[in-house]
């Protein structure tokens, strides 16, 4: 498990995370939702050990994340950041191969893994294209392929991928594709944690769902259980209505027009 226990993080006077507890279970898709500035990215960066001066403990497969070296950690978890800019004309193949940087595997093993992931992400036709000439959706798929390549091989220990709003500024088809790929990774003993902007997508793909506001977890639990009108209204300060998809019974929300509710102080118990 990839576990945050009582994580607090502050920059100067500003408390960005406040006693956050979160667990990413291998084989499950864990989504984090919340308004802008809630501390979602900060939480992800803390989990990834990009921020290190936090209070509390991050446990990776039962061991404190602080004792891992950058290389050891890279064998257990991969991270897809919000925007990755590259200013050199690397080919798609080369970018995906960079996912194998920390590994000590043979060329053959690397090639097999890269080939498998490239096929899975539908990038075969792009292999020799320059990364700089790709569209936003293609770039994001390449980055996801790189991240998957990093943790793809079956190991005795579970691996994790952390995705920071992987679909922002992509069209709906590309968004569905990225999430479907991440979901597929779950079947390889990989735990997925994703910050998801679109609530309907969050509930569609996630097994576990966390709602974060102002650095605090408002509610958490199984996605279908915690996805309720009061929780969402409390988190986003916005009136919403919940409906159900008649085909698969999956809930979805539609925000109400031009209404703002004051943040409510009622505690929500689930």
């Amino acid at each position: 498990m990839y576990q945050a226990t009582n994580i607090s993080y502050r920059i100067g006077e500003k408390q960005l995370l406040h006693n956050v507890n979160l667990t990413v279970v291998p084989g499950k898709f864990t989504a984090v939702a919340g308004p802008n500035g809630a501390g979602k990215s900060t939480l992800l960066k803390t989990l990834a050990q990009e921020h290190r001066n936090y209070q509390g403990e991050v446990l990776v497969n039962g061991k404190s994340a602080r004792v891992y070296s950058p290389r050891e950690l890279s064998l257990v978890r991969a991270v897809l950041s919000q925007n990755t800019t590259i200013s050199f004309a690397f080919t798609v193949q080369q970018i995906v191969e960079l996912g194998r940087h920390g590994h000590r595997s043979t060329r053959r093993e690397n090639d097999d893994i890269v080939d498998e992931v490239v096929a899975l992400t539908g990038l075969e036709a792009f292999r020799d294209r320059s990364y700089l000439t790709l569209s936003g959706g293609e770039k994001q798929r390449v980055q996801l392929a790189r991240v998957l390549t990093q943790v793809w091989e079956e190991t005795l220990f579970p691996r994790y991928i952390l995705l920071d709003e992987p679909t922002s500024s992509l069209d709906i088809a590309q968004q569905q594709l990225i999430f479907a790929l991440a979901k597929k990774a779950c079947s390889r003993n990989i735990g997925v944690m994703a910050i998801v902007h679109d609530l309907n997508q969050a509930v569609q793909f996630a097994d576990d769902l966390y709602f974060l506001r102002a650095g605090k977890i408002i509610a958490s639990g199984e996605a279908h259980v915690v996805f309720t009108k009061p929780v969402i209204e409390e988190t986003f300060c916005c009136r919403v209505n919940i409906y159900r998809d008649p085909c698969n019974n999956c809930p979805y929300i539609i925000p109400e027009r031009e209404t703002f509710s004051e943040p409510r102080s009622v505690a929500i118990n689930l």
Partner: peptide, 12 residues
């Protein structure tokens, strides 16, 4: 080339 944070995440 991926960026400093990404390089760190990749094990550098």
């Amino acid at each position: 080339a991926l960026g400093e944070a990404e390089a760190y995440h990749s094990g550098a």
